[in-house]
Amino acid sequence: MPFLTDDDRPLDELLLAQRPDDGHRFQVRAPFAYLDPVGGQRYEVPVQDAASSPGDAGDGAAGSDLASVPSALWGLIASYGRQSAPALLHDHRSAVAAGSATGGPPSRSAASTTGCSARRSASRGCRC
């Protein structure tokens, strides 16, 4: 999978913090990147500010709910696992596209395409 640590090693773990401690949002504690295998573009996912609460806007510190799974399906489908890195990439690129994260606002379609490409790479079957 084309997910890498910030020093270009294959990503073998995600360091996340649950915010608030009893909540359903997570913040990235160690940066990672996605290398698009088709276009060669590198997409960075930075560390999110632990001092910001998940509801804050402005720097993308709102965190992620990982893969949004309706609560009725929680017993069947986990919101975390192999899909966590693609979900975090998607959430960060969406924040960038909306202008609430650093990195300049690319088009929303660029964020959606990147997220779909990452999910397809992880699941080998995304039909987004």
Rank of each mutant, 00 (worst) to 15 (best):
R127I: 01
L11P: 08
V28P: 02
G55C: 05
G55P: 03
I77M: 09
A78I: 09
G39C: 06
W74L: 13
A30C: 04
L16N: 08
D12T: 00
R124A: 12
Q83P: 01
S121E: 15
W74E: 14
R25H: 12
Y80H: 09
P2D: 11
R120F: 03
R108D: 02
G75T: 05
S107P: 11
A87L: 08
D22H: 13
A97G: 10
A97V: 02
R42W: 03
V96I: 15
G81N: 10
S121T: 09
S71F: 11
S84C: 04
H90Y: 14
S94E: 12
Q18C: 12
A101R: 09
A101Y: 10
F32Y: 12
F32N: 08
F3Q: 03
S109P: 00
S117N: 15
G23R: 02
D49C: 13
A118G: 08
G58A: 11
A98C: 07
A85R: 03
L76M: 06
S79A: 03
G99D: 07
Q41W: 06
G40W: 08
S112M: 13
G58V: 09
V69T: 10
M1K: 15
A101P: 03
L76K: 11
A33L: 06
L15F: 02
I77L: 13
P46K: 10
S117L: 14
T113P: 00
V69H: 10
Y43P: 00
